[in-house]
Design a protein around this nucleic acid. Structure first.
Length: 223
DNA sequence: TGCCAGGCCGGGT
DNA sequence: ACCCGGCATGGC
């Protein structure tokens, strides 16, 4: 008998939490650091991003004002380790300019905006796509937004919970429909999925679901 | 050594 | 509406 998506999605969360423990995401000391990290980690290993963040801190460049004033070539040099540094420097500049133009350079004002409106505005910034926008909203702003990434899609399509052909919004809606609307839960769940990916998914082809494989849900087993 | 990592954009079909 | 090449470093 088929197990409901709702039960499966919630059960998988419980199993991941049990296996990996609470993740305490996002790694970052401040909303700004989280926002910057969200851009720098686009298709990039977090380790490389951390070096870039350390550099920015060391050069006192990790503030809204400093990022607004810094020369783009110099910024690119500071974030070199995160890869795609030229385009990411532009993207950071776009985002900082947006924050100043739209919210007078105040993150508080920005996050006081309605979540839906802010999401649309962020998506209109060149270099900010859905995952980056949603990461900023959830981890930077504490908004109830579920972040979908490559791991989410891979793992949950393997589990048969989403289609391989599903797009971002479709996958995100499955989580909205089946999870309690809770910032803490969204935060932890996405972090756990990444942890699953980082720790397990490297072994191919099917081991990415190892921690879940054989887990019994109702009368069914995840396969 | 080659492949990949917490994407996104722009141009082409 | 998809599909693809480009963007780039550091770790294993």
């Amino acid at each position: 008998m088929a197990l409901s998506k709702e039960k499966a999605i919630n059960r998988i969360y419980d199993e991941l939490l049990r296996k990996f423990g609470s993740q305490h995401w996002w790694p970052g000391d401040s909303p700004l650091e989280i926002i910057v990290g969200a851009v720098l980690t686009q298709n990039t290993n977090w380790q490389n991003v951390e070096r870039a963040i350390v550099n920015l801190k060391k050069e006192k460049a990790l503030s809204l004002k400093a990022l607004k004033l810094i020369n783009i070539k110099r910024l690119a040099g500071l974030i070199r380790s995160s890869g795609y540094y030229n385009i990411k420097a532009k993207r950071l500049k776009n985002l900082i300019n947006f924050i100043f133009c739209e919210y007078s350079g105040s993150l508080k004002k920005m996050f006081d905006d309605s979540t839906e409106v802010l999401r649309e505005k962020l998506l209109a910034v060149n270099g900010i796509g859905k995952e980056t926008a949603d990461s900023i909203l959830l981890y930077g702003g504490g908004k109830p937004v579920f972040v979908v990434d490559a791991y989410t899609k891979r793992v949950f399509s393997r589990l048969g919970i989403v289609q391989k052909s599903s797009g971002y919004d479709e996958i995100q809606n499955i989580f909205y429909k089946n999870l309690k609307k809770d910032v803490r839960l969204y935060n932890e769940y996405h972090a756990l999925i990444v942890s699953l990916g980082k720790n397990i998914c490297k072994v191919k082809p099917a081991c990415e679901i190892c921690p879940l494989k054989g887990v019994t849900i109702g009368n069914c087993q995840l396969a």
